[in-house]
Amino acid sequence: MAAATVVPATSVIANLKLLNNYNYDEWSFRVKIYLLAEDLWDFVEATTEPPKPEDGEAEFKAWRKNNAKALYAIQSSCGDDTYSLIGGITTAKLAWDTLEEKLKPAKEELVPHEDLNTDPTSKDGNSNLNKNLAGHDSNSSYFSEFGQDQPFLDFVTNGDWDSAKEYLDINPDVIRKRGSISGATALHMAVVLEDEDMAMSLVELMAEEDLEIQDANGVTAIGAAANKGLAQVAKCIVEKNKKILTLPCLGDMIPLLTAYSSGHWKLARFFYSLTPLEALLRDKRQRWR
Rank of each mutant, 00 (worst) to 15 (best):
A106T: 12
D173T: 13
P151Y: 03
K104W: 03
A73N: 13
Q75S: 12
G183W: 09
V192M: 13
S127A: 09
V174F: 04
S201C: 10
D115P: 00
I74C: 03
H136I: 09
H136T: 06
G125L: 09
D97L: 08
E196V: 15
S84I: 14
K104Q: 13
G159T: 03
A68I: 04
S141H: 02
R176D: 12
A68C: 09
K123R: 11
V192Q: 11
T121E: 15
E109R: 07
G179T: 09
N171G: 02
A68P: 01
D149G: 00
S127W: 08
A70L: 03
S122W: 08
L103A: 04
A186N: 07
L94G: 00
E109V: 11
W63F: 15
I86G: 02
S77I: 08
I175G: 02
S84A: 11
I86Q: 01
D81I: 08
N171S: 14
A95H: 04
E101W: 07
E100F: 05
G88P: 02
S180T: 15
K104D: 01
L103E: 04
S144L: 07
K69N: 12
N132K: 06
D173N: 12
K131Q: 10
L85Q: 05
E108V: 12
D169Q: 15
N171W: 08
K102F: 08
D81C: 06
T157S: 09
D80M: 13
S76N: 13
D169A: 15
I74T: 04
N67H: 06
A186H: 05
K104G: 03
S163Q: 13
L187V: 12
S77H: 07
V203S: 08
P105Q: 03
D115H: 02
K102N: 08
P120V: 04
A92M: 05
A68S: 15
V111C: 03
L153I: 07
S122H: 12
W161L: 10
P112I: 05
N126M: 13
S182E: 05
N67K: 05
L94R: 14
A73K: 03
A68D: 13
D149M: 01
A186D: 07
L153P: 00
I89S: 07
G125F: 03
K107H: 06
D169M: 12
V203W: 07
N158P: 00
N130G: 01
I170P: 00
S182V: 06
G87A: 14
D162N: 13
K123C: 05
L94W: 07
